[in-house]
Simulated assay, not measured.
Amino acid sequence: MTVRTVLGDVEELGVTYAHEHLFMTGGWPVRNEPDYRLDSLEAAVAEVTAARRHGLGAVVEMTPLGFGRGPRLMRALSERTGLHVVAVTGFHKSTYYSDAHWLHHYDADEIAGLLVSEIEEGMDELGLVGPIVRRSPARAGAIKLAAGYHRLPHGRLISAVAQAARRTGAPVVTHCDKGTMGHELLDALDVDRVVLGHIDHNPDPGYLVSLAERGAYLAFDRPGRIKYGPDSDVVALVEALAEKGLGHRLLFGMDLARRSYWPSLGGGPGLTYLLDRFVPRLEAAGLGEVARAALTGNAAAAFAIRRG
């Protein structure tokens, strides 16, 4: 399987976090909340280096267009640490973009063309804010689409993302607000691979099983962020999926999109938590094999570029 990283296509990722943020240098989050400013290469190197000691091999960097994702920074981080970084093109919720932004005005075909170019030619260094495109050698490897709380994104965006996924063979990775809109996104997109992000924020085993049975990948990112609920909730969800034979649809990440989550910047729990603290807990519950698959084989299948 071939996965597209910021340094080129690779055949193996190793242990992979399916939802992470390493750089956010501008746009809505940074303007409204300084805690979202992740613009230090040195801090990112420190975080990644610590996690690499625990076996981390790759991350899917989920910072989308308009949030200052930093292709040069991602490449520099990958070169310095050996971490594989899969970047995304695409969007967060449309309400996070000004009324003048092109995503509110371009048609689906035009938007799809821009997304395809980021995957096949290279990401724009400035996130397609235009009018000049400064094409990076770093190419995106997945396409992001965000749903609101019980609200689908605009139909033009859904159509554009689905079209770009079919043209490039890249997976669609989603933001599911509070774990909602899973089935609705699967229905609307109608593509072969969808990764449902934040889906464990709706800790309903029956709901998650029903999504996995449809072939969705479920990206769990709550471990260590106790404000959303205890880790025991996530352990129970993993067990419920495993009991139904659906562990092969499971992915893990941490979504540490704030400075206050990074030990190098005075916070926590840090990127090491998932491998150092949460996976051993799964192993103690007899779920070690499920955890290893979620972090390796499942991730490799979910994020591969599939042609034809």
Rank of each mutant, 00 (worst) to 15 (best):
S40G: 08
R258K: 14
Y97P: 02
Y273F: 15
D39R: 05
G288V: 04
G179T: 08
T272Y: 07
F23A: 12
V48L: 06
Y273C: 12
R222N: 06
D221G: 14
H19I: 00
F23S: 10
V45R: 08
M254T: 13
D124N: 11
R258Q: 09
V133E: 09
G55I: 04
V195H: 08
D221E: 12
G206C: 06
G169N: 04
S78I: 12
L282W: 06
R225P: 07
Y36R: 13
D255W: 08
Y36W: 11
H84Q: 13
A236L: 05
E11I: 01
G90E: 03
G268T: 00
V194M: 11
G113N: 03
E79M: 09
V290F: 05
R167W: 12
R69D: 03
R37W: 09
T25D: 10
F23D: 03
L241P: 07
G288E: 05
G270A: 02
R151T: 14
A146E: 02
R259S: 14
L56N: 00
A219M: 11
G286I: 09
R277F: 14
R292G: 05
S78C: 07
G113E: 09
E243Y: 00
L126I: 11
M123I: 08
G130W: 07
A216D: 02
L41K: 10
T180Y: 04
S159G: 10
L251E: 01
D233R: 10
R307S: 13
L295A: 04
F67G: 10
L145W: 00
S232M: 11
L251V: 03
P230M: 10
I199P: 01
F303I: 02
V45Q: 09
Q163L: 15
D107T: 11
E121A: 14
D231A: 02
Q163E: 14
A50Q: 12
G288R: 04
D255T: 08
D107M: 11
A147L: 04
R259I: 13
T95S: 13
I226V: 15
F252Y: 13
L196M: 07
L65C: 02
F278T: 12
P269T: 13
G27T: 01
G182I: 03
